[in-house]
Design a binder for these strands. Sequence first.
DNA 1: CCGTTGTGTGAGATCGATATCATATTTGGA
DNA 2: TCCAAATATGATATCGATCTCACACAACGG
Lengths: 343, 343
Amino acid sequence: MAQKAVTLKDVALAANVSRATAARALNGYGYVGGEASARVLQAADRLGYRGNRVAQALRRGQLPLIGFMPGDIQNPFFARIAHDVDVELRASNHNLLIASSEEDPEQEMELLDSLQSLNVRGFIVAPTSADDNAHLIRLVNEGVPIVLIDRALPDVACDSVTVDNEGGAREAVNYLIANGHRRIGLVQDDSRITTARGRLAGYIQALKSHGLEVDESLIIVSRSTVEYAIDATIRLFSRPSRPTALFTVDSLMTQGALLGLRSMGLAVPHDVSLVGFDDFNLATFTDPQITVVAQPIAQIGPLAVKLLLQRINGSSEPQHNAQFPTRLIVRGSVSRPAGAPLR
Amino acid sequence: MAQKAVTLKDVALAANVSRATAARALNGYGYVGGEASARVLQAADRLGYRGNRVAQALRRGQLPLIGFMPGDIQNPFFARIAHDVDVELRASNHNLLIASSEEDPEQEMELLDSLQSLNVRGFIVAPTSADDNAHLIRLVNEGVPIVLIDRALPDVACDSVTVDNEGGAREAVNYLIANGHRRIGLVQDDSRITTARGRLAGYIQALKSHGLEVDESLIIVSRSTVEYAIDATIRLFSRPSRPTALFTVDSLMTQGALLGLRSMGLAVPHDVSLVGFDDFNLATFTDPQITVVAQPIAQIGPLAVKLLLQRINGSSEPQHNAQFPTRLIVRGSVSRPAGAPLR
DNA sequence: CCGTTGTGTGAGATCGATATCATATTTGGA
DNA sequence: TCCAAATATGATATCGATCTCACACAACGG
């Protein structure tokens, strides 16, 4: 069925030279006679020789592949980064292996293992857990190039590209407070994830710096999924004394919150003010448009690739942990709560 | 720097047997003594032997990799399929190589070539062009397993999983006509893409079956991108006599149309009725919610994987071209045009 | 005219895993 | 007891590309 591919041997035979000479002609190293070289090149062309990257990889010890492991490829945030990484890598002839961890540390471990045995040259990972990192530490110690994105891990000594989650969350909550809100709800991701921790920290800092108490009943843990967030939002707003404002820690949760609130007949911003982390195209489609903390998403992928390729090429520069600032984009989803004094 | 990985040789040495015996013990074939087997297994475990999939691939002639080539991984439609394919493949120990063609036939060719020389086991492709298919035909003739998704190609003899584009478009336009619209605009994708052709055909059929003329000035060609679609929409509605309704052929274009109309101060459905092809979560966030032709997206990825794995495992069943029906989801973006007679 | 560089080429080792083949060694049945 | 079958193991070829090494031959200076 599947025809066997043309091998170097075939080309060498057709050109009437040895495999060694054929290889030299094709790869342009060592001494090759002009005439022999021409014959080889012509034969290769005629036979449609493509070379076997697997064999090359075995010889060289590495495949020109990069593993990309997002928490969820359907999250537009990761999809965008995947796209940028793909484009960026194409320039250096690498291909992209995408394997979603589905936010499961177990699965992350297995996939990392499986890809490593493929002799992948390096990884770009959004680590699922802030704590269970033995596998990542092991990889780093083995000298495997890794760049963490979105979520940095202090105990894993490798490059990372992240965003100022704490600062972004603080700014969002400060903004809500400045608008007169005192009971500010938080739809939070699993605290295993570092970004969730950072954003929670920012939330708490903002409250404390204004002398507000952190009320556990205003915080609800969901998952980064529209469906879960709908449910979480409904549960949060079914509790005795409702928040007047809501901060959601990622775009899918913001969508979920929007739907959850709508299903309860709560209007944004009339009944509840809303600020989300991570901008998303939907945010400008709603009425009112949603105020969000935007991340410089276009910069994350390219920088991650740049750092990774540097490591792959043997750079031994000190660990580089890039952290981009966020930007609060004020749109129309926040208003002063009923009965709040004008400042 | 990078530690060399543990090889079979190391394990064999540690277990004090030959490589052959070690391989037998690890892979469970042929005769192996119970004691030797135990020693090998234990040594492998102790050393953390993982096996080198590249070497295995060289030997076997194939890597357990599947190439997935969408037009654009950022399009939620493809992101969803990528996710499903990833999950499905995990069950059979394959990894997913994702390489976006970016709707460029040239790039599609190069990537296909590059992945083929990686001894990928098969491809799932959303072919960019309905016409330039020499490369796909060549692959099929070489016996490389391929499944086309979203877009079938009559001249490429391989399995495919698609959707009834013509029928879906017809239904959408029929619905607009039934609501009294006579001037129905079309925001269309590059006619190189087969889905675009099918949806255009459906649009034309619906018009003709109601005795309506196809007015070229109501059709505008965009690209599957929010930005392009905004622009196209604005241009379309800047022409002398505007349509009263609009049909957009994919979700990104629907978004673009929405934004374009808004920027021109045209309200949906008051000024313009809108039906889009492909459902998307945003469609229910807008006010009004958008009426769309939905595709059974959850079924596409799994079926494509199933068909592909069958081919990989040597099935020689006749070519299977699955086509799912679409479903019109009526929401609130269509109303009767001003001055239209009630039926 | 001979040794030294400089060219051009092929034989063969290598990467790591696997499978075939040949060679022990044991077991079982006649 | 003896031979055949069953069991266990190692040596080695193989997958395809690359690269070192050794060898051949030319050109060149002294």
